[in-house]
Design a protein around this nucleic acid. Structure first.
Lengths: 203, 203
DNA sequence: CTCTAATTTCAGTATTTTCTGAAATTTCTA
DNA sequence: TAGAAATTTCAGAAAATACTGAAATTAGAG
């Protein structure tokens, strides 16, 4: 591996984390290398720097493309494919969340929706369905929130994030304002599923 | 496997998704079974229902305990260990997020912080460090937000989520209010890292 | 303390995933 | 359209992970 110690540490770390992130070592390292490279790299550059076989690099790049995490670029008078990661780190974050949602959440939500429609054939199944409904409920609440928030432009999103739980304060303020005309305390709509406990268990 | 078709579909799905979620088939199925069981189960119950070896179930339960996803319970006049998942689905969500953060994000943030402190030894390293700083910046923004939000009680959290991007509207309202005393448009504090693009690429 | 039930550990095996080199295919150039 | 460069495919090897049964350990009951 022909990298300085700093970049090597970074690349190796991404290789190690790869399995936890649902990609393999090769793919993790290739991504890391592209991420910190100021210029786009072609497959042979990657082979030179990481020492994987040409075919492995080819498959790794294919997977990164399937994840939408790398962009293809062509240089004038050079027919080789060059790869790079988006300059905008926020675009990368959006892609990552989107792809993980697609792989890790959507299939389950779809199965839950089917199972919850079926006619239960025993008390056990009725209970199981109730649990599935609760699970589908939270997933829907979170993904609906995400679908909403992902439409915010980057500045607004960053603003929202850095506000953190202070949003809470603003919500209360809003509540108080909404309260002015009538007299009943306003309450946002509840989603369709129930909550077993109401208090915060903390960590 | 001694399950009705509905519960079997659920359990098998969790087994298949397991690898995408960073656990294995066995662990996924055991979790699914505990999740939809109205009563706590002991290891032999699980062996009976899923058909894995006793030792495999033991290891699976150990892993689920390491993830903090199952609770141990004892029944009177029975020395066997019984396992169940929390009744409160929100508690489960909190645990899941916390554990995944611990495994998938914290180690990387810690590596990034170290590398970003080092003295760059070339223009390439300076660029690489800049990228790492951007990455650390987003991760910090998101995890700080999370640390804040996780303290909300469940009702508040659900309220916040179901509000979605409408928070945006409220932020604008707040901005307008804050504006009253002075005349300059108020702007929330920016975090320390820069953003390359400002526009929203959308999905 | 001894016996037994319950659980865990672990070495070996099975399975799955990753990786490679060679061959096939695609794409561009002349 | 022939030839060369670039890329992909794929069968088999290598490595990593999951799983099992047997043995060891732990924990409770008498």
């Amino acid at each position: 591996m022909k990298l300085t110690s700093m970049t090597q540490d970074f690349v190796l770390h991404f290789g190690e984390m790869g399995s936890r992130w649902g990609i393999n070592r090769t793919v993790g390292q290739i991504y890391a290398l592209l991420f910190i490279s100021s210029e786009p790299l072609n497959a042979d550059d990657i082979v030179d720097q990481l020492g994987f076989s040409r075919s492995n690099v080819s498959m790794g790049l294919k997977e990164l493309q399937a994840w939408n995490l790398v962009r293809l670029k062509h240089l004038p008078d050079d027919r080789r494919d060059y790869f790079h990661t988006p300059a905008d780190i926020w675009e990368i974050l959006r892609t990552l969340v989107e792809e993980r949602k697609k792989r890790e959440i959507d299939p389950t939500l779809s199965v839950l929706r089917e199972l919850v429609m079926q006619q239960p054939s025993s008390p056990d199944e009725t209970y199981a369905q109730q649990r599935m409904r609760e699970m589908a409920g939270v997933i829907e609440l979170v993904t609906d929130w995400y679908d909403d928030v992902k439409r915010l432009d980057t500045d607004r999103l960053a603003q929202l994030l850095s506000l953190g739980a202070k949003v809470q304060k603003i919500l209360e303020m809003k509540d108080r304002l909404t309260l002015i005309p009538g007299l009943k305390r306003s309450r946002p709509a509840r989603s369709a599923f129930g909550r077993s406990q109401t208090t915060n268990e903390g960590e």
